[in-house]
Amino acid sequence: MRVGGALLIVFSCGFIGLIVAKSYSDRVQNIKALLTFVQMLETEIGYSRTSLPEAFERIARQLQGPVSVFLQTVSHRLEVEPDLAMQDAWLFGVYVLEENGLPIAVLEDLITFGDVLGVSDADDQKKHLNLLRVRLTQASETAEAEHRKNARMWQYLGFCAGTLIALLLF
């Protein structure tokens, strides 16, 4: 009975540690997916002149994970509510990313970008996309550094903390 309880505590704490560690790698993956989105959107705007709802739909099909859901959300909102301003539809999408743990700084950059998205000619849109790319690259580097620093620590910390609690209790 005691051994069972101790093992339960160790594995529960270890599991929590693994989840926290995974959140660091997810963050890196999601920011990289956003960078891919920026690259693809630049192509859609610069070369194909695809309208935003169509471009989002197209890019969402080629990506996976929260960034794909984010784009599907924006595209769906624009489709069902044609009167909706892009900025408002964009915010609905940003909420999806917020729920998936993207850093506040990235969310703020995205919201700022949403204010200018689609309101000017292609040259101007490319400048805004470039700025977003620079900001996301910085965020990606920071997220990778945090991942390197913290992910392994959390993987061990969970199990160690679980073991310590088990020893103290039993």
């Binding site: 002149r49 309208s51 624009l78 044609p82 301003a85 892009m86 689609g118 000017s120 000619d121 292609a122």
Partner: peptide, 16 residues
């Protein structure tokens, strides 16, 4: 502004 957004489908650049 709202009318322009609607007629350009929020994509001014697509109608340059």
């Amino acid at each position: 502004q709202r009318t322009v957004q609607i007629i350009t489908r929020n994509s001014w650049y697509a109608f340059e």
